[in-house]
């Protein structure tokens, strides 16, 4: 038997515990308990879905904003001249319409600005009178409304395209809200699946955890080991999911370009790279990793409470 060992270590008993990394620094055997397939695959799928939903939400918002800019009023009524008395009589008659919340003549300066690209600067040009009407709720039957206005204002020109634009804007807004809800749902699903995976890892390593606990490891030591591994796997899966989502998002953005006034895409360089919500997309893998880390911390610390 060799001689008595030289001990110099008792002072370490009260130091803040940290499980080190490196060779043999995976005492929990998490590479086997949390294999590098399930969690990255889940993170990949969830990030892919969330990125597509996020892209859809931002696309719908861009469409709604563009359409709203082009349709200030639901209905416009064009009178052949600017006779103020006739404008006043017409407005009085129109205010009798049901569900009308606002009726006013379009500002002449704004009208001139709208016409300038086509007619240029012609100060002497007589402009027609344009009346803008707003309804709440929007009329169910725009064509019937146009006929009714014509019966009140004979000789006028009625444009009801704004009703359809308003309906499309409302639809796009709903699409945006639904897509954002889908992002939240996808992230919640990711939390649920990660919890199942972490619990499986805990069950596979409960004997090892008990040994580490008996050797003086704190809940934080053990939970941090799990959380670090889960966050790493989620970040890798999330990055892969985002990479897979990008071609689809660029394709969708290219298709929506014609609705947003952009030229058709014929070359790779013309893809609408700048149209994508990059900060939000880049945050997705980080958010997935942070969710995985938090889920692991909460799950493992909760599980460890059963130990004395």
């Amino acid at each position: 038997m060799p001689g008595t060992p030289k001990f110099t270590v008792s002072r370490w008993a009260n130091r803040r515990p940290v499980l080190r990394r490196g060779r043999g620094r995976d005492p929990l055997g998490l590479r086997q308990a949390l294999p590098g397939l399930l969690l990255p695959a889940v993170a990949l799928a969830m990030t892919l879905l969330a990125a597509l939903a996020l892209g859809g939400a931002f696309g719908a918002r861009a469409l709604a904003q563009r359409w709203q800019q082009g349709a200030a009023a639901a209905v416009t009524v064009q009178l052949p001249d600017m006779d103020q008395a006739r404008v006043a009589r017409t407005l009085a008659a129109l205010r009798e319409l049901p569900d009308l919340v606002d009726a006013r003549p379009m500002d002449q300066a704004r009208l001139a600005a709208l016409l300038r690209p086509w007619l240029g600067e012609i100060p002497a040009l007589p402009l027609p009178a344009i009346l803008e009407l707003r309804f709440d709720p929007l009329p169910e039957n725009p064509e019937g409304l146009a006929l009714r206005i014509l019966s009140v204002v004979p000789g006028a020109t009625v444009e009801t395209q704004g009703v359809w634009v308003a309906r499309l804007v409302a639809l796009a807004t709903r699409v945006e809200q639904t897509a954002l809800a889908a992002v939240v749902l996808v992230l919640l699903l990711a939390v649920a699946v990660a919890t199942v995976g972490i619990r499986a890892g805990l069950a596979a390593r409960q004997d090892v955890i008990a040994i580490l606990h008996d050797l003086g490891a704190t809940d934080g030591d053990i939970a941090n080991r799990f959380a670090g591994r889960v966050a790493l796997l989620c970040a890798l899966g999330g990055a892969a999911g985002l990479a897979l989502a990008l071609p689809a998002l660029l394709a969708f953005s290219g298709l929506a370009g014609s609705l947003l006034g952009r030229l058709p895409v014929t070359r790779l360089a013309e893809l609408p790279w700048r149209a994508l919500p990059w900060p939000w997309l880049a945050a997705l893998p980080v958010a997935v990793a942070a969710l995985g880390w938090t889920t692991a911390e909460v799950t493992v610390r909760g599980w460890l409470k059963r130990l004395p």
């Binding site: 370490w12 515990p17 005492p27 055997g29 003086g216």
Partner: peptide, 23 residues
């Protein structure tokens, strides 16, 4: 109650690593 996936060295080192001892 040794950890089967760790070498003899790493099993003995485990309490020191838990205590934060430098490698």
């Amino acid at each position: 109650r040794l950890l089967p996936h760790l070498s003899a060295f790493d099993n003995i080192a485990l309490p020191l690593r838990i205590a934060g001892r430098a490698e």
